[in-house]
Design a protein around this nucleic acid. Structure first.
Lengths: 216, 216
DNA sequence: GTCTATAGCAGGATAGAC
DNA sequence: GTCTATCCTGCTATAGAC
């Protein structure tokens, strides 16, 4: 017989799919927990419980707490900035006022994922303390950076920025602004209004355009 | 007799001074250790040993690990940025090319104190996870911010920036740039050249000056 | 005021049942 | 593949000697 009553053919989840789902749930819970308690402060039991499993199940899916953390770091789905940027990019970034749009996009990212900044800070601290994983962080950063660079290049083109100014350098500056303003906004929201980021971007891009006249 | 051989009057350190010195040594060791291992990852024994004392001595000077950490946060001597800014400020910031000077100053701070960024990140993470200490972090940030604002105002005046642009807002943007670039430089030094900070500041201040023509 | 010793507890990781 | 129970280590904080 082809069809066995004991094992229905239309079963939705294979064993592998169940395991994959467990892994995904554990990764989600880990992201939340690491963001809230930090790598050292978060316990594996806490993470497992947040996902609805036991520590045994966690260790059956990840070899150690560190392995779980590093998988999060390499997991590109975590990077909302890159995802949002790509979405906006393929959506036609140059149609609206590009710089304003870029500012809005990044503010949205900051507001939507309240744990994003904390988790990034954890990754950064972990990487500077464990040089062997710095490469992984650099790879992850490069992904976001390239997505951002696309947006920046579009904004520069629309504004008619001088060609010799590298979009790569400007993207780095924009990323720095983003990181720094998000961080300060958490400490003192009054100092960092919602519009400040867009305003800073406008100053920046205006200054870049004025490079034409400058010597070097 | 005035002078007692058993207890020389020209003794350098009183008991209070000895204790103050112990406290200072413990605070220094704590700053290094927290920067290298994080608040949760650093053990009090580790800190005490780094200072050349025992855990008992540490607890005789600070009521808990957290109290030690918070004292570091409030300790204004820790803030090299504010100190350097004040030094430069009273030294005459407006004499040289102000923006370039500002860029050099901040790069120096980043290079001189390699642990500065890590410790600041620890403070930030601790504050967002323990709202009751966010006020202390905000106070500390305000100190640096005001020192920076003085420098920024001087640079703006020298460049003839429009009066209606607030030095406070610009100082926030400059601080964000600083934080963000220092952070990225640790991950990928090739992306963040030494000159990039100065260049970004030049773009920024040039763009601000062009505000005159702008609508809003 | 500092040291040694230790109480008391929590967390990472594992073993074996199911 | 997941759960329960547990080992072992390492940590914070304290007590008492000097």
């Amino acid at each position: 017989m082809d069809a066995q009553p004991e094992e229905p053919v239309r079963r939705r989840l294979t064993r592998a799919e169940t395991k994959a789902r467990t892994r995904a749930l554990l990764l989600d819970a880990a992201a939340r927990t690491f963001a809230r308690k930090g790598f050292t402060g978060a316990s594996v039991e806490e993470i497992a419980e947040a996902a609805g499993f036991s520590t045994g199940a966690l260790y059956s899916n990840f070899s150690s707490k560190e392995a779980l953390f590093l998988e999060l770091l390499s997991d590109r789905r975590r990077d909302r900035l890159a995802a949002a940027a790509q979405a906006l990019d393929s959506h036609g970034a140059g149609t609206a006022e590009a710089v304003t749009e870029l500012g809005r996009l990044l503010v949205n990212v900051a507001d939507k994922d309240i744990e994003f900044a904390a988790l990034q800070a954890e990754f950064w601290l972990y990487a500077i303390r464990n040089p062997q994983v710095m490469g992984a962080l650099a790879d992850s950063a490069r992904e976001s950076h390239q997505a951002l660079e696309g947006l920046v290049a579009a904004a520069m083109a629309r504004r008619g920025a001088p060609e010799r100014v590298s979009a790569q350098a400007v993207a780095t500056v924009v990323a720095a602004l983003f990181i720094g303003l998000v961080r300060q906004r958490r400490v003192d929201p009054d100092c960092v209004s919602e519009e400040l980021f867009g305003q800073a971007l406008n100053w920046l891009f205006t200054g870049i355009n004025a490079e034409d006249a400058d010597g070097d």
